[in-house]
Design a protein around this nucleic acid. Structure first.
Lengths: 111, 111
DNA sequence: TATCATACCTTGTTCGACAAGGCAAAGGGC
DNA sequence: GCCCTTTGCCTTGTCGAACAAGGTATGATA
């Protein structure tokens, strides 16, 4: 299914926070993990995720760390700060509230 | 709860189409009905809904009709065209797909 | 009579997702 | 060895949706 771009607005930040809340990941990994878990519904673009990560880092939600794996090149791993964990919780609650409100309007006809 | 603006992006069009799919309404009525049904989660602004309605009308999704009620001033009622009904269905499906994908990422921990 | 809610509208700003590029290293095929 | 793809990092500029902040006018209410 192709999605109207407007639907993806707002999901990116929640997605990043939710994934990093589980473990540290690097940008490219986040892209792939989101795509995999959502059964390809989410296909974030690099032009979306890199600026988003930088902005969140500047905002003190994330901290970045370069790690040199045994093989392959160094990767920049992001993890949540304490502030980031709070934000993850808050964003999650917001999403769930919006989602519940939408169901009230749309009716719960299709599950 | 206050919502980050980004979360509301994309919901406006779905909301309007879903409400008008039930019956013809005028703009101000849509604002109030969405607020009422969502338990005040949605509080669309006039600067959001009027341009949205005009654009959807130009796009052939809606048709407008002035109706003079028995009391009070004339109101501009909007209703869906055939094209609008199709769009309503499509947008609804998109929303549900996104919503399902989000649950896959967030985990279904909170229902 | 004054004020509030209703009811229509517009202009300009802000901000997030994206398109379209660029750079460099690692690995596989030939 | 050489090329091409994938990985993995990044930036700049554009587009579009929601909103803030204004405007106008009518009807109801105190």
């Amino acid at each position: 299914m192709d999605y109207d771009r407007e639907f993806l607005t707002g999901t990116v930040t929640v997605l990043i926070l939710a994934l990093l809340n589980e473990r540290a990941m690097y940008a490219y990994e986040i892209l792939q993990e989101a795509e995999r878990r959502s059964a390809r519904a989410f296909q974030m673009k690099e032009g979306t995720i890199y600026p988003a990560l930088h902005q969140m880092e500047r905002g003190g939600l994330l901290k970045a760390e370069w790690r040199q794996g045994e093989s392959g090149r160094a990767r920049k791993y992001y993890s949540l700060t304490a502030k980031g964990r709070k934000k993850a919780q808050s964003k999650r609650e917001q999403w769930e509230a919006i989602s519940a409100a939408m169901r009230m309007i749309l009716g719960d006809l299709h599950g």
